[in-house]
Nucleic acid binder design. Sequence first.
RNA 1: GCGCCCGUAGCGCAGUUGGAUAGCGCGUUUGACUCCGACUCAAAAGGCCGCUGGUUCGAAUCCAGUCGGGCGUACCA
Length: 587
Amino acid sequence: MPEIQQTGAPEAAAYTQHAKEAYHRKDLLDMAREEARAALLAAAQRAVAAGALPAAPSAAFVVEVPGDAAHGDLAANLALVNAKALGLPPRKIAEAVVAHFPAEDMFEKVEIAGPGFINLFLGQGYYAGVVMAAVLCGGEYGRTDAGRGEKVNVEFVSANPTGPMHLGNARGGALGDCLAEALSWAGYHVTREFYINDAGNQIAKFGVSLAARYLQIVQGPDAVPFPEDGYQGDDIRQRAQDFFDEYGAAPAQKDAAELEQLLIDYALPRNIAALREDLSTYRVHYDVWFSESQLHESGAVDAAVRLLQERGAAYEQDGAIWYKATAFGGDKDEVLVRANGVPTYFAADIAYHADKFARGFTKAIDVWGADHHGHVARMKGALDAIGLDGSKLDIVLMQFVRLVRDGAPVRMSKRTGKAITLTDLLEEVPIDSARFFFNLRDPGSQIEFDLDLAVAQDSENPVYYVQYAHARICSILKALAGDGVAFRQDVAFANLAKLAAPEERALIRQIAAFPGEIVAAAKGYDPARITRYVAELATVFHKFYTACRVKGEEEGLLQARLALCVATRTVLANGLAMLKVSAPEKM
RNA sequence: GCGCCCGUAGCGCAGUUGGAUAGCGCGUUUGACUCCGACUCAAAAGGCCGCUGGUUCGAAUCCAGUCGGGCGUACCA
């Protein structure tokens, strides 16, 4: 934690107090909001004491940032929500409260507007404090302790290791990773986790598919039929070929089960390694790679099924063991163990989530494709059924991605003719674009991913628009440095009161909103807020740039504006860092 | 049939736990570079917020119904 630097200038000393508070609280806007609320309630108390109000108003009102800056920095609906209970028109209540509003230097002006809103205008000290906080906190600006270190597990992608990752995994990767990042910035203790489905039906199918391809290589393409429901992909052929190159034709003599296992043992680790590598290229790094087979081997799956049976939440029928979903809010019961004795994915998933909570997480967040939504209720219900709290599991359901080129949907890869993989996508669009675009919409919305736009090198492309703002600021600093003008924090901080133009104020307000935006993204499981935030910040900066010059202004104003540029650059860089999108110094 | 998600400007989307005159980008029309990066900015036009009713000081937002679209409803994962 860097020390707050004391500047020599006397005016700056007072402002530094704001910056200091911001540093500890990490969110000046939130602080102002709370102070506004407290001041309004105190004013109401005084109004009651003075006989101007019949009774104290309810505290159930909101203090929000109005959409229109003309309505102040903060607006309270205290008078509106209390009109009925107090039996007075809203404006009368507002007048009584405002008349007793304490004189505080934090609020410059308090107004009554519209049907009875109380609009509060923050003073220069606040605005200066925001700039200082961003400059002083630097790469830490935006971090808060809202999550109080709560241990959360974010599981995402968890792609099937039988093949390469598809577009849904690509979205899930960008979404889950940025969500984890937002949670971390918001003060949660985050673990990123990948669940490897290396057991069960699809692995058996994987083995059968590999064996068929291998035998086709050894005995000729028509010697062995490829199973109807086998994995068709070229990756399967490639693994079989690699295996043949290494071990020759001898393994073909083994019986089917033995050969399949041999091929699985050969191909699965390679596939998992490929997943890791592809995700790493995509800038996604996990803390934990959790293997499903481990749950089967340790007996955790059997134990979970037994626990359900003991608690009367499971029963046997037709040779299978069923989970009584109907007793826990589900609409139909589900098979846990098939008649052939093999547990289902569902049974393993119950054991898996029980394991997560046993590891001390108080919140488990899973990012799933929307096609799994039917699984949500029964998963939570099953956790309740084994005595864990299903509400501690949150599922972020992610809608599908539609690729579009030249205005027409793209279904297949041009090169392979098969479904488009993450690798295919990254061959065509920069990683920056992919990560940004997948986080442009909230998880619940279908995304239309415009391939033409994602590679466009102009302002139509939102990634470039934001990156350009960052590069532009770097360019200003460089141009000034070329003229022998360096950023001087002490001079800048002493002159922050000069930042009074509407465009400067708007930019500072946007900077002030950053910490709260991160908390909202984290708590709402919506990292798209960060993407939209940085785009908006870039817009507000460009407007400032057009309206206000830096170079050539008198020393005080120049330095103050330089501080604003540095603050903006910091916030842009931090926001982009959360998305793992690069913040170039020049483009 | 039942369940989940979604209907906001020509297109793609925001709308801060119910707030003030419903916004943004693209597209269309019109402007702004002798000047810190015009990869930028300013302005105009463009709306039964799918529809109907309800809740209240106040609804795009909440509730009920209805229409339209997507997805799910396996001893698959």
